[in-house]
Simulated scan of single mutants.
Amino acid sequence: MRDANLTGYTPKATPGVTPEDILPAFSRVVSCDGGGGALGHPAVSLRIEATQVTCPYCSRTYVLQDGAGGDDHH
């Protein structure tokens, strides 16, 4: 599934639908494994395009913290 602009899959939290499991992010790329050990999900890397990204597996939302995200370079 991709977004309408074909920039990549970047799910967003939907109020009333997405669980309110919000975690701080200090980098534009975060790794999520569901946090449940064997009960979690496959580890995925998620890129924060604007200010937040929601994991497509577990719906955890990662919010980029103020002053973070300067890791755009190669």
Rank of each mutant, 00 (worst) to 15 (best):
G34V: 02
C32E: 01
V29P: 01
V44Q: 09
H73S: 08
L39C: 13
V53T: 04
P56C: 05
V63M: 06
A4M: 10
D3L: 11
C32S: 06
G67L: 03
H41E: 09
A43G: 11
E20C: 11
E20N: 14
N5G: 11
V63L: 06
T54Q: 10
V29D: 00
V17T: 15
D72T: 09
K12G: 10
G36L: 12
C32G: 03
R47K: 13
V63T: 08
Y57S: 12
T7C: 10
N5Y: 14
H73G: 06
G36E: 09
T51N: 12
G69T: 04
L64F: 00
G35F: 11
N5L: 15
H41F: 04
L46G: 01
N5F: 14
V63N: 02
L23A: 11
D33T: 07
Y62P: 02
G37I: 05
G8D: 08
R2V: 11
V63W: 03
Q65D: 09
V44Y: 01
T61P: 04
P15M: 11
D72R: 08
A38E: 13
E49P: 02
Y57H: 14
D21F: 10
M1I: 11
C32Y: 01
G16W: 06
P15Y: 07
S27I: 00
P11T: 04
I22R: 14
Y57R: 12
R2L: 14
G8P: 03
T61E: 04
P56D: 10
T18A: 10
E20W: 07
L6C: 12
F26R: 08
D3V: 07
P19L: 13
C32L: 04
S31Y: 03
T7A: 12
G70N: 09
T10V: 08
D21M: 10
A43T: 14
M1E: 10
Q65T: 14
H73M: 09
L23G: 05
C55W: 04
K12R: 15
G35W: 06
D72G: 03
V17C: 09
L6S: 14
I48C: 00
V17H: 14
V29F: 02
I48N: 01
N5V: 13
N5R: 15
D71M: 04
V53I: 13
H41Q: 08
P56E: 05
R2S: 12
H41P: 05
G67A: 05
R2I: 11
A68S: 07
G70Y: 02
V30S: 00
C55Y: 05
E49Q: 07
Q52I: 02
G69R: 04
G35E: 08
H74I: 05
A4V: 13
R47T: 15
P24C: 07
G69S: 06
R60A: 15
Q65W: 00
M1W: 12
A13W: 03
S31L: 08
T51C: 03
G40N: 01
T10K: 04
H74Q: 08
E49N: 05
R2D: 15
S27R: 12
P56F: 12
P42F: 10
G70D: 06
